[in-house]
């Protein structure tokens, strides 16, 4: 850390004003307000661009299917709530069945990923063992191979194990850290954590397990939160894996159910599909809105202050 410390602290102060804890406080309060207003204005403008499609989706979910694609605008003349009531019961099972199936898979995936990936990441980032580099390289290769050529051999393996048409192929791999993305992510985070912290714990006589659970995990808050949020979102919206493994429609997850509204060669029930899309997006949005708190909170415990 020493070289970084000196780099961060220039020998001669760049400015001559009285040093202040936060530079913002050095700016006059009038300027600060103007600047803050400008920033908010920019962010709001950007937000509109970002959110327009979602607003359109939301508004469209209250329109009859026939008019959805004739109006790119956001005006709503009437609330066509039938999309929701019909959409909920239009498929073989009521929609909450699919929501529940997705929930089970997602919870399993989150737990699996957090446990297994953090273990592997700790080993890669902090432990010195033989062939570490080789294993790490293999792990990276597993990210690089496109899923479409892996899926058939994998299907054959799970079929031999008798696990097709169960959620095991969707959840078990997460407990075995097959999402190398998260292993790598956590490795990078751990390597950013000051080594003095676990060295200190080691000198105090802690074993690896104790260092991992008592020192590392608490420090990995943002990384764990990020992994959890991504796992939730990606699992929740994953289409291909459940498509391949689930055959019984009562076991379908939400993305499979949503596709059932589509029929490109005759008419699709867009209204119902949009309504149910909103139903499935709301939990994701809430997860993100509240989950991101942990991105911030996790750090309060970090070495600095």
């Amino acid at each position: 850390m020493t070289d970084l410390d000196t780099a961060a602290l220039p020998a001669t102060p760049a400015r001559t004003e009285q040093p202040a804890p936060r530079s913002q406080q050095a700016v006059s309060s009038g300027g600060r307000i103007a600047r803050s207003l400008l920033k908010h204005l920019m962010l709001i403008l950007a937000s509109i661009v970002m959110i327009y499609p979602l607003l359109w989706l939301l508004v469209s979910s209250f329109r009859p299917t026939e008019v959805i694609f004739r109006t790119p605008g956001l005006w709503l003349n009437e609330l066509f709530v039938q999309n929701y009531s019909e959409g909920w019961f239009a498929l073989g099972s009521p929609f909450h069945v699919y929501l529940f199936n997705s929930l089970v898979v997602t919870v399993g995936a989150v737990v699996g990923n957090l446990v297994s990936c953090s273990l592997a990441a700790y080993a890669f980032a902090r432990l010195k063992f033989r062939l570490r580099t080789l294993w790490f390289a293999i792990m990276l290769v597993t990210i690089m191979l496109p899923i479409h050529v892996i899926v058939v051999p994998q299907y054959i393996i799970f079929n031999l194990l008798g696990w097709v048409n169960t959620i095991i192929p969707l959840v078990l791999p997460k407990f075995l850290a097959t999402d190398a993305f998260f292993v790598f992510l956590m490795v990078q985070f751990i390597r950013g954590i000051p080594r003095e912290l676990d060295e200190a714990a080691r000198i105090d006589g802690c074993g690896h397990w104790q260092i991992f659970t008592r020192v590392m995990l608490p420090l990995m808050g943002p990384a764990l939160a990020t992994s959890a949020i991504f796992t939730i979102i990606w699992t929740w919206s994953d289409f291909f894996t459940p498509l391949i493994y689930l055959t019984d429609p009562t076991k379908y997850t939400v993305p499979l159910a949503l596709r059932s509204f589509l029929d490109a060669t005759s008419g699709s029930n867009w209204g119902a599909m949009f309504a149910m899309s909103i139903v499935t997006l709301v939990p994701m949005f809430l997860v993100f809105l509240f989950g991101q708190k942990f991105l911030i909170r996790g750090i309060a415990t970090t070495g600095g202050k």
């Binding site: 073989g92 289409f239 498509l243 055959t247 019984d248 429609p249 596709r259 059932s260 589509l262 029929d263 490109a264 060669t265």
Partner: peptide, 10 residues
Amino acid sequence: ISPQPGEWAS
């Protein structure tokens, strides 16, 4: 009979 409904492309 165990039904397996689907959507064209997939």
